[in-house]
């Protein structure tokens, strides 16, 4: 069914940009929540939470998905859009969903600590459902709008700010460490690694570590 956003071009994933970097990170987040969904199935079937795997997933979600990815959105991209359109509605909705997501993550972490299957399963399924819909809204609507709104100079400035997050806030090597954990969990739960896709891999490594190709 056609939507009113169809006139906006899909996010260009062939080059690093303010939105393509975040879309690439979405692929990793989807990978992790698919693992989480399978952990919930396993917990229901076996009557116990796969505690170690679930803790690893929570670490990736809290650090990679929330602190790093949502941090870039809330502190860098969203303010840039809100500066152009005061009272910009879509970012307010996305911020609200980030808050709800954190509540689900807190519930999952508490359930893991208490080995509470009945608490873990609905929290994991609720988080998975929320994030899938949230990511679809960002990729299909908000990021398309952002791509059309940002000038090349603004886009370049945002990319530079993302690099500062990776280097200064997160610390060199954190990104790769978390991606390594995400891939190790994916291997256990039979989930395709997002990094296997060359285009996604290029986006995931575009703002972390070296990128000059000179040395």
């Amino acid at each position: 069914m056609p939507s009113c956003h169809d006139h906006l071009l899909p996010v260009d994933l062939t080059r690093p940009s303010a939105v393509s970097i975040l879309s690439g990170e979405h692929r990793v987040i989807l990978q992790v929540i698919t693992c989480l969904e399978r952990m919930a199935v396993q917990a229901t079937r076996e009557g116990r939470i796969p505690t170690g795997h679930a803790r690893s997933a929570i670490e990736v979600i809290r650090t990679f998905a929330d602190r790093c990815h949502h941090g870039k959105e809330e502190d860098i991209l969203f303010p840039a859009l809100e500066a152009q359109v005061p009272g910009f509605g879509p970012t307010a909705v996305m911020r609200e969903e980030h808050v709800i997501g954190r509540q689900y993550v807190a519930a999952m972490a508490a359930a893991i600590d208490a080995d509470d299957v009945a608490g873990f399963v609905p929290a994991a399924n609720g988080y998975t459902e929320l994030l899938r819909a949230h990511i679809a809204k960002e990729d299909d609507i908000l990021f398309r709008m952002a791509q059309a709104m940002l000038s090349p100079a603004q886009d370049a400035a945002i990319l530079e700010a993302y690099r500062a997050v990776e280097h200064d806030d997160m610390g060199d090597g954190t990104h790769e460490r978390l991606l390594g954990i995400a891939d190790a969990i994916a291997d256990v739960y039979g989930v395709e690694r997002a990094s296997n896709d060359p285009q996604t891999f290029a986006l995931l490594t575009a703002v972390c570590g070296c990128h000059t190709g000179k040395a």
């Binding site: 170690g52 795997h53 460490r177 390594g180 954990i181 891939d183 190790a184 891999f201």
Partner: peptide, 20 residues
């Protein structure tokens, strides 16, 4: 075995670094 074996996560990290 749980937790995710440190070695598996470390090899996945090194794999990504090597590709980069």
């Amino acid at each position: 075995p749980e937790p995710i074996a440190d070695r598996a996560a470390e090899l996945s990290r090194l794999r990504l670094l090597a590709r980069k």
